[in-house]
Design a protein around this nucleic acid. Structure first.
Lengths: 156, 156
DNA sequence: CTAGATCCTCAAGTAACTTGAGGAGCAACT
DNA sequence: AGTTGCTCCTCAAGTTACTTGAGGATCTAG
């Protein structure tokens, strides 16, 4: 068996969460209380997976309450399957919406950087053609996605 | 001239920020103090653009401090153009990184929903094949992006 | 066996808002 | 002219999701 036990610092490294954040998650009941050896917390591979998943969801802007829901999707075995699918579907909708917005910002920024590199661009920003382009792209972004409902279903 | 003056509620609608949030942004100096008529704030098209841009950046997970920096990108004309480009480039890196992670999550979720719809799925989650698929996809997601540096440059 | 890194708990601080109290102003129907 | 209802104002307190700090114990390497 290769299941080594990890102290909290190693878990933090592997999951990209900070040590105090992990303790905080335990405190609020998002992750189960860790096993202890001489008062110190010990973790396994399952904990690395769970925490990585949690950190990822947080990066995407889901609230801790929603993350709790998502974690329970694949850990809790006594829920109605259709209900679980509906939750996942709704999360998927949000994720797709975020992706279109991120794509629009990516386009704005890359256009800006490209034109800033290609045009003669030695002076201050007021002389720089690319700056005007940038503020123009933001207007375009707005036109592209006019009815951004602010995902109130998910973060309210 | 078609420049109508907007009360704070209309600005909130158009920019997708809440009314208290706009007042808060004024208070912390992120947006300039609005003109007033009978004590009430009045705004124009420029304010709609600025606030929409700010809201969008916040949705993408940039801190208010970073947003301040980005707002000054196209409003402040006395900065070195190369410096401005470097800031934009760094933002672009973060945005691209977020996009690959979002894409991975999108894949996980859509696979889950699809298989949940196709297989016989009438009981509880412990009976459902799709749940096992989902937790498997999360492991895949982890393998796809192992060195997530947590964007410390941007949100520290 | 000691020096430094890592761990522990508990309390307080921070960012970015949100909510609530208490009150004034404007629009528009009657 | 009155009053009903919506929007606005300020100021203070609450919320979420952490982070930082104090004060102390414990493990690990040289």
């Amino acid at each position: 068996m290769k299941s080594a036990f990890l102290p909290i610092g190693a878990l933090a490294d592997q999951s990209q969460c900070s040590v105090p954040t992990i303790r905080y998650y335990e405190q609020i009941g998002l992750i189960p209380p860790a096993a202890r050896s001489a008062g110190r917390r010990l973790y396994g591979e399952e904990d690395v997976r769970r925490l990585t998943f949690i950190r990822r969801c947080r990066d995407f802007g889901f609230s801790l309450e929603r993350v709790k829901e998502m974690v329970s999707l694949y850990e809790n075995g006594d829920r109605d399957c259709a209900e679980v699918r509906d939750i996942a579907q709704a999360h998927l909708d949000v994720v797709r919406h975020r992706m279109t917005e991120l794509l629009a910002l990516e386009k704005s920024l890359s256009q800006f950087v490209t034109s800033c590199n290609s045009v003669s661009c030695q002076g201050t920003t007021s002389d720089c053609v690319a700056i005007e382009d940038l503020s123009q792209s933001f207007k375009e972004v707005r036109r592209m996605a006019p009815a951004t409902s602010k995902d109130e279903t998910w973060n309210s």
